[in-house]
Design a protein around this nucleic acid. Sequence first.
DNA 1: GAAGAGTACTTGCAAAATGCAAGTGGTTGG
DNA 2: CCAACCACTTGCATTTTGCAAGTACTCTTC
Lengths: 150, 150
Amino acid sequence: MSVTQSSKAKQRSECVFSNVLDLFGDKWTLLVIRDIFFFNKHEFKEFLASPECIATNILSDRLKRLLANGVIAEQIHPENKSRKFYYLTEKGKALLPMLIAMAKWGAIYMPDLNEMQKLYARLREDEKKLLSEVMDAIEQWEAQNIPKSQ
Amino acid sequence: MSVTQSSKAKQRSECVFSNVLDLFGDKWTLLVIRDIFFFNKHEFKEFLASPECIATNILSDRLKRLLANGVIAEQIHPENKSRKFYYLTEKGKALLPMLIAMAKWGAIYMPDLNEMQKLYARLREDEKKLLSEVMDAIEQWEAQNIPKSQ
DNA sequence: GAAGAGTACTTGCAAAATGCAAGTGGTTGG
DNA sequence: CCAACCACTTGCATTTTGCAAGTACTCTTC
């Protein structure tokens, strides 16, 4: 039990923003969510391979928190018991608009557009289409990997 | 010079999300932004009075970072040189959709709806109207308090 | 014009979170 | 059975936070 802050340990106030930040207000949590949404990553080692180089203990902690809060779910890899899949629950999938809003702001106001040009272009071109394409990709992965997607 | 992370000190990667999180990925920064948008707060002591009880050193640091990154601007209080106004720049005002997305998610998935019911109601009722009302309030404050709003 | 209150901070120190390197225990392929 | 892989855990140094106290400046009141 090393989850930095358990499910609803201490909330700083009853404000939505403060509560959302209690869950996602750090430099790593949303990067994991990004990896699932936009890079179709689902395993521990895949998250580790992201360019930000998250440490294994931090990743482990964040996955636990997200699991404990029902944002993601896990499943043993069907082909290998020592591997796991992590995937978004409905609660987690509902975060996409937030990520899109972040990306839109960043695309305009952050100086460095080198990476992710494709995302920006798709964002500018047709946001709703991007949104549905990302969700389609997620659901397609689920159909192939999660036995009974409830 | 105690700003935790200067303007573009070290970026973890060239990903938008990672860059946005380098700026806003903590438990306090967006609460200051929330206070300006939704509670019409503009002074140090007003931010301190929020229910989350931010410490003075943290607040001071966050204001510096936001200033350094052009998200907010400051101005000496016209009636008292020892007071300051902090207000959103265009860059800062553009954060509203992100906050709205956070609030929408929280309104649905966070268990504690006690506070901020009004915001949720307005969000459900007519999001665009809420958005423009918040922006109107901000601009009205500026018209009254910022001499030449450029 | 000195005293007191208010404002926006800074400082110092303890506690917590993070970053890094190394290790652990189970699983699988050969 | 052994080496490689995988998802972690552990230990420890560094960084960030939280808290209490202090400081410098301004304005108000006598």
